[in-house]
Structure formats: C-alpha cells, structure tokens
Amino acid sequence: MKLKRRTQPPPQETIVSLIDVIFFLLVFFMLVGRMDATAPFEVSPPVSAAGESLPKGGTTIAVAENGALALDGEAIERPALLAHIADLLSKKPGLFVRINAHGEARLTNLLPLVTALERAGVGDVVLVITPNPA
C-alpha cells in the first residue's frame, strides 16, 4: 500500500517582528550614544576615581599632549578659540565648557586656559576624566 504524505503549506514567516526588533535597537543606539565631534589629535583623559558624572551638552575644548587645541573637533589657535568662546557666550550666557585634556599634557597648557575662560565669563568649566573603578 502506498501512503500518500499530506503536503503541508509552507509556514508564514512574518517580517513585522524583525522590523520591531531592529527599530528598537536603532532607537536604543541613537538615544544611548552622544554624538561628539572627536578632536583631530589623540586625547586620552587622565584617570581618576574622584569624578562626577559628566552632564550632556556644552562645548568641548580638546587639549593635546603637545598643547594643541581643538574646539568641537576643529583644530584652533588659542586667540581664535577665546574669541569663539566669547561669541558663544554672548549668545548663551550660561555656557558649559568641557575640557578634554590629554593626561600627559603639561599644566601650562591647561591652567592658563581655564583662567582665560573664567575671565571671559564662562561660569561652568569641567575637566573630563576617565573613571577608575579601583
């Protein structure tokens, strides 16, 4: 006797759940990531366990190991940088400035800059550090 196998219809794969998952992942990466312009030179911030959480927003000044400066990812000289900061400050008085300095940068390249920023009227300047869990 010959048994005839019943032909089953192919299972319906819905693509909708896949789209949902991809969409959630996309939104997650867009929300979690903060788009920051990276400096045109290498900056590895100093390591310390005594830091506080870094707030979002503001302007980033990067200081390279050799003292080169960058404002929001664009290399800039110090006078132009201060002029730009003064310009930003006139538009937004409560300007928040992050200084992303290389850990090996000399303090002569950092502390006078902080003083100049304070003189220009910036009331909120922070130094970016890498947290050390130890």
């Binding site: 991809i22 990466f29 130094l127 550090i129």
Partner: peptide
Amino acid sequence: MMILLVFFMVTSTYLDLDMMPMVQS
C-alpha cells in the same frame, strides 16, 4: 533600518567619562 543600525553601531565609540569641576559659577 538595518543600514542605519549598522551605521550607528560602527561609527559610535562608547566612552565612559566623568568630570571634575574646574570653574563653578
């Protein structure tokens, strides 16, 4: 969506950063 997802995953570098106040108003 897949292309956007891969773009964000590849171009982002996730850094854990803290701060130390230098000037406080």
